[in-house]
Design a protein around this nucleic acid. Structure first.
Lengths: 204, 204
DNA sequence: GTCTATATTCTGATAGAC
DNA sequence: GTCTATCAGAATATAGAC
């Protein structure tokens, strides 16, 4: 009678290799851009040949898909790790904006993959897409607790914060030209949608 | 003694072919995306073979470059064709925002090419880049006439309007989910930077 | 699970005839 | 100015030995 081991060392090894592949893909994406992620490059980076990758992923698209899901899960984790929201709603909203902004500008390739474009034929699977929906729902809940409920108000929020991220990445990567105006942006938004509370900045 | 003709029919024909090539490239970009613009496709579309394109452009990159310059020049033309700015500064700013927004969402491929990303190795030449700078300077002048002068204020403007465009293109292409909130965006912005004048919308 | 070898397809670009 | 023919390279993916 053969006892089953309580750890599946083979599965663990497999999972480790999978992670290694994804890590390599991310590093290439950060270094040379998302389009530079080729099976050859990824394999070379971890001392493999490209056909070997097919043991771990069905296709190149499957690698992108795993990266997409991973990125959104990371963002979810970052939000989950935030300290409890401050009482003052404007402070809470600034914390949300700064957390998202920081995550986005920390890794251009990741941000591009998460928000489409740039990768020609890629479309996330349903499962991967669900991860992004979950984050959006979380954001909706947090804004709700600050008194923002209307869909139109949410739309404005996502647009202006995303716009700040885009400008920062495109025109001042590594700088803080838009970053440092986030408190102002939040004040402006809160005044419009009617979030009460003390101003974050002195008036102009 | 041979008189010089006052029209260079050969140069005219050349210019016409150049335009034909660019038009074909734009059509492919709109139909299948920027990355689908290949020399073969472009040539096929106008009944040519790809090597023939090299008679008119030095490289594929030169085609992208001409498209880039063309797009910014078009935007310049659109701004130049605007009726005189209304007296009320907020009305003037709304007209600016709507004009830019309309131009941007009318052609996703064009917007993507103008604002980088998506095209792997492309970087505009100095000459082409100058066209985009000219548009930015024009925008700066128009905002100045509305009382917006500080660089920080301009930065906020470009970010929030660009953010609206991105959201519209990404999440509701062909719709007006963000488009219809432009008056509100302008009010919000004007309140923050201190542009006077009657509200564009009734208060929430 | 990883390898070599190879298929297939597509890319931008060049040489040289007409 | 346009063509045919071709190059050189890269991409994803598969077959089958070890």
């Amino acid at each position: 009678m053969s006892a089953l081991p309580n750890r599946d060392r083979r599965a663990e090894r497999r999972e480790a290799t999978r992670r290694e592949i994804l890590d390599a893909a991310w590093e290439i994406a950060r270094r040379e851009g998302l389009s530079a992620v080729t099976l050859r490059e990824v394999a070379a980076q971890i001392g493999m040949r490209s056909p070997s990758l097919y043991t771990h992923f069905d296709s190149k698209s499957a690698i992108y898909d795993a990266m997409f899901a991973q990125a959104w899960t990371e963002l979810q984790d970052v939000f989950d790790a935030m300290p409890p929201q401050p009482e003052a709603p404007r402070r809470a909203m600034l914390a949300l904006a700064e957390t998202f902004f920081g995550f986005a500008v920390a890794d251009l390739a990741r941000y591009q993959l998460m928000n489409q474009r740039t990768v020609p034929g890629f479309q996330p699977s349903e499962a991967a897409y669900a991860a992004s929906v979950a984050v959006y729902e979380g954001m909706r809940g947090r804004l709700r607790r600050c008194g923002v409920r209307a869909q139109a108000d949410l739309d404005v929020w996502t647009a202006i914060v995303g716009g700040f991220v885009d400008q920062q990445l495109a025109n001042d990567p590594g700088g803080s030209r838009w970053r440092r105006q986030l408190p102002r942006l939040v004040d402006m938004y809160c005044a419009e949608v009617g979030v009460p509370g003390p101003q974050l900045r002195r008036s102009r």
